[in-house]
């Protein structure tokens, strides 16, 4: 599984980092998210899916 944040959609709601803190890192300046690792370790796949399902902007893109 791979994941990235569509920066044109992310508005810094920060819910992704609550759901999967090891994968999503928030900018210190505006709280917008980045995926620290594109490849999701298997044990974090559920957390990443939860993050994607909670993002109000639907900015989290999961592939593979």
């Amino acid at each position: 599984m791979r994941v990235h944040v569509d920066e044109t959609k992310c508005q810094g709601h920060t819910l992704c980092a609550m759901a999967a803190p090891d994968i999503f890192e928030l900018s210190d300046f505006d709280g917008h998210a980045q995926a620290v690792a594109g490849d999701v370790p298997p044990h974090l796949e559920d957390a990443v899916k939860a993050a994607a399902s909670t993002c109000p902007e639907q900015a989290i893109v999961i592939t593979g």
């Binding site: 508005q11 709601h13 920060t14 819910l15 939860a50 399902s53 909670t54 109000p56 902007e57 639907q58």
Partner: peptide
């Protein structure tokens, strides 16, 4: 509740700036 993509802080460019 999971998958709670509520809109209480708004959506888009005007997302509540004080949400944190």
């Amino acid at each position: 509740r999971g998958a709670n993509r509520h809109t209480s802080f708004g959506l888009g460019l005007h997302r509540c700036i004080g949400s944190n």
